[in-house]
Structures are given as C-alpha cells and as structure tokens.
C-alpha cells in the first residue's frame, strides 16, 4: 500500500519485482528513460485525483510527464503514444476535455501523438480515467546524463519554486477549505533542458531529473545514492512560493517531498554553474532557478539540509507515508 509514495518502498518494489524479472543492460540504469542507439524511449502511467485541477488536468500531465522524462535523458521529444483505461460511465465530455488539453500540451511541447489505445473496464474497477503514455525522442547531443554522474564540487540547481503541483492537487480534492492562490506547475521541460545543455560544455551537465513523486528530496537521494556522493542543500535558498509554504505548514508537509510536474533538478560542474543558471533564467520556466546546494564526497549516499540556524538535518528517503518520529 505504501508502494506509491515514491519513497524507499517504491524502490524496493522496483528492485525486487521488476528489475528481477526484466533484467537487461538497457533497463538496469533505471533512469527516466532508456537509450537505444540515438533514440530515447520512455513510458509512464498517470493516475491522479482529481482529474481536473487548477493549472491542468490528467491530460496535460500525461503529455508533459513523458515529454519531461525524455528531456531528462537529454533527448528532444518527438512522438508519443497514449493509452486510456476508462471506467464504464465516464462522461464523454470529460474525455473530450482531457484529449483537448493533451493536444494543446503536445503542440506546446513540439511532439505528436501518433498511436494509442482505449479500454473500458466495469464500473468500480477503475477510478474514472487512467492514461499511459510512451514516448520516443532523439538524442541530438553527445550528452550522457546519469544519476550516477554527480561529482564532488558540482553545483545542484533547482529550476523553479517547488511543490506547487502536489499542494494544488491536495487542495483540489476539496476535503479542505483552504484558500490558496495556487496552480499546478505542470509544464514541458524539453526547451528549458535544451537551453541548459546548449549553454554548457559537453559533460558539464551531469544529471537532470524532474522532481515528480517524492519531490526534490527523493530525486536528490537517488542522485546521492547512485553517484555515491553527499548532497548538501541550503534550506533558505530552496525556492518555495509563500502560498505553498503556508499550505505546507498548515498540512504539516515538508515541501522538499512534494511532487512537482514542471520542475527539474540539475547537477552541473562547478565551473559552469553560473552559466547554467543564466541559461535557465532566460527561459520563462526557469526564471526562479537557484543554485541550492553542492555535491560533496562525504558522507556518500546522504542528502543533508543546512537549516536556517546552521544545523544539519538528514533528508532521508521516506520508507512510506511520512509519519511523525517524535516521541
């Protein structure tokens, strides 16, 4: 049950079941997508409640999600497939709305949806509408991005304010009567990523990751673990919108663990950090990008947060849903 939160439980599920069954050299890096020759290939499934929320819906989420996974491989997204699992009785009007936003998102991202599939399951066997998208992109650059490529001294960049998508979704469920001027951050990151890669020399951009499920904290843990390095981030520098901070405070949630759908983490060589940041700032999606921390050699595999008062807190991968630990 805890296997969906994007934390350690998800990781152990992936390791124990999927990697074990499908083991092959292309799968093993467990990146956002696979490299097959000059092609990047990825797939993602989308399950979200509610289906429509401020700033987007499951449709543009499904397009942007796969576009972003390709972009994080350093690829230019080209073609997408889309499969739908619909619950019997799902309103056609809703489906139209979803497909319309998919089309718009595809156009904005410069990709074509070229194939698809639809299944209808009995009422109660699904929650409205699920979407699975797959995508291929072309690897136009020699860039070989990898979570295992971070090196001591590298800078850690976050492309914009974090947590907007996750908090928007929580509030959009309507269980809470909370006023917040928030919209999802769902957006295609391919242009932003391309601009960053173009600005830096080959190999200077070590790793790109979109901070989806489990948020920035989870992405940083994956990089720290894969690269066997420490990542030190600064609490005061991590961009968080006041509305998000306020909602997080009320909900008792750490924004570092909240999902984004249009934000990425970039690890870049120290010497190109300023260039990279400037490139990000030029793009509307990267206006608030910030260097939030750096890579150290010790302690390997750990993410540490420098707090406002100069303390150093361990930002761990969560095993399941966050539960208080204080006695």
């Amino acid at each position: 049950l805890a296997h969906g939160a994007g934390g350690k439980a998800t990781h152990s599920l992936i390791d124990a079941v999927f990697l074990d069954a499908f083991r092959n050299p292309l799968l093993e890096p467990l990146g956002d997508g696979a490299h097959i020759g000059e092609t990047a290939f990825t797939t993602d499934s989308f399950v979200v409640t509610p289906l429509f929320f401020p700033g987007g819906d499951i449709g543009d989420l499904a397009v942007n999600g796969t576009v972003n996974d390709l972009a994080m491989c350093g690829a230019r997204p080209r073609h997408l497939s889309a499969a739908f699992i619909l619950e019997e009785g799902f309103p056609v009007a809703h489906l139209r709305r979803i497909t319309a936003s998919m089309a718009a998102a595809a156009q904005a991202a410069g990709v074509q949806i070229v194939t698809g599939d639809t299944k209808v399951v009995e009422r109660g066997k699904a929650d409205g509408c699920y979407i699975i998208t797959s995508g291929v992109g072309t690897l136009d650059r020699p860039a070989r991005l990898s979570a295992a490529a971070a090196r001591p001294g590298d800078a850690v960049i976050v492309s914009g304010p974090i947590g907007e998508h996750g908090i928007t979704i929580m509030l959009a469920r309507g269980e809470l009567d909370i006023e917040a001027d928030l919209t999802s951050d769902t957006a295609p990151l391919a242009d932003l990523a391309a601009g960053l890669l173009d600005a830096c020399d080959d190999g200077q951009v070590r790793c790109l990751r979109d901070a989806t499920r489990g948020g920035v904290a989870t992405v940083l843990n994956e990089i720290a673990e894969a690269s066997k390095v420490a990542i030190i981030v600064n609490e005061d520098i991590i961009p968080v919108r006041p509305d998000v901070r306020g909602a997080c405070e009320l909900l008792g949630i750490d924004p570092l663990y909240v999902a984004c759908e249009g934000r990425m983490v970039a690890v870049v060589a120290r010497e190109c950090a300023e260039t990279a940041l400037a490139a990000l700032h030029e793009h509307p999606l990267g206006r608030d990008a910030a260097i939030v921390g750096q890579v150290n050699d010790d302690p390997p595999g750990l993410v540490l947060l420098k707090t406002t008062f100069g303390g150093t807190r361990i930002v761990d991968l969560l095993v399941g849903d966050p539960l208080p630990r204080i006695c």
């Binding site: 269980e175 809470l176 006695c327």
Partner: peptide, 23 residues
C-alpha cells in the same frame, strides 16, 4: 486564522495520523 482549517484537516483525515498518545 488557522483553527478552522486544522479542524478540517483532522476531520478529513488529511495528513492526520491517528494517535493514542498521552503526550
């Protein structure tokens, strides 16, 4: 400012784990 929201949070069970804590 937040009293009603917190009561709402508790009633909705959003990030509100149950506890039998004396503390």
């Amino acid at each position: 400012p937040r009293w009603a929201n917190v009561v709402g949070l508790a009633r909705a069970g959003v990030n509100s784990p149950a506890t039998s804590s004396a503390g």
